[in-house]
């Protein structure tokens, strides 16, 4: 039945088990949210672990935070928030049937992701240079750590920022994918489900960083 769509003049093919494009859109959206919950719970496990050990070893965590440069985290926060804005604008322009502007917004979003990763790269290499590695690899003598298990703090630091970084890269590739599809003309105000989904994913990446920044860089 529902191979044609209620919307006039768009070329997206509605899958056979949906009634119409709107039905497909709402279902996909729910699927996306269900997936986002799993992301929150997965990252959340790390946050729970962090809270517990932060409570047990507050001084050790404070010492760890001192080795981080809050300015780097600060710049990255601003970059990510800005990229979230451009991502939202990308969808906005598609809703308004302005694909060219949408392409520009998405491209800026990818660029911001790249800047974020470059800053991250410098942060990481700087730490490696100082002998700051996670866990038992941390060079206690070289760092001059006051707490013998400072490696745990950096275990959390590298796990959380590393997993987050993987998500940034994943998000960048997803945005690149919808960027090309936008250029190809797949999306318009009637059909932009994929962009919406990728957008929600990108905002999750931002959301997690919003918490990581104060937790890792500032609290101490």
């Amino acid at each position: 039945m529902s191979t044609d769509s209620t919307h006039a003049g768009h070329d997206h093919h509605v899958a056979h088990h949906f009634r119409n494009a709107e039905h497909e859109y709402l279902t996909s959206k729910e699927g996306i949210w269900l997936f986002m919950v799993t992301e929150i719970l997965m990252f959340g496990g790390l946050f729970v672990g962090y809270s517990i050990f932060h409570n047990i070893y507050p001084e050790m965590f404070a010492e760890g935070a001192k080795y981080l440069d809050w300015k780097m985290g600060f710049i990255n926060t601003l970059v990510l928030i800005f990229s979230s804005l451009t991502m939202a604008l990308g969808i906005y322009f598609l809703q308004k049937n302005q694909p060219k502007k949408a392409v520009v917004s998405l491209a800026i979003t990818i660029l911001c992701g790249a800047i974020f990763m470059v800053v991250k790269y410098f942060e990481y290499t700087h730490k490696f240079h100082l002998g700051i590695f996670p866990g038992r690899l941390l060079d206690v003598a070289k760092v001059g750590a006051e707490h013998a298990n400072l490696g745990m703090y950096f275990g959390f630091y590298y796990c959380m920022t590393g997993l987050h970084g993987i998500h940034v890269l994943l998000g960048m590739s997803l945005i690149t994918w919808v960027l090309f599809r936008t250029i190809r003309g797949d999306f318009n105000s009637n059909y932009y489900t994929a962009v919406e989904g990728v957008g929600i994913f990108w905002h999750i990446v931002d959301l997690i960083w919003i918490f990581l920044f104060p937790l890792l860089y500032l609290v101490g």
Partner: peptide
């Protein structure tokens, strides 16, 4: 990496 979250020897 021996982060020590689950290892009592590392706190």
């Amino acid at each position: 990496f021996g982060v020590g979250i689950f290892d009592p020897a590392l706190g």
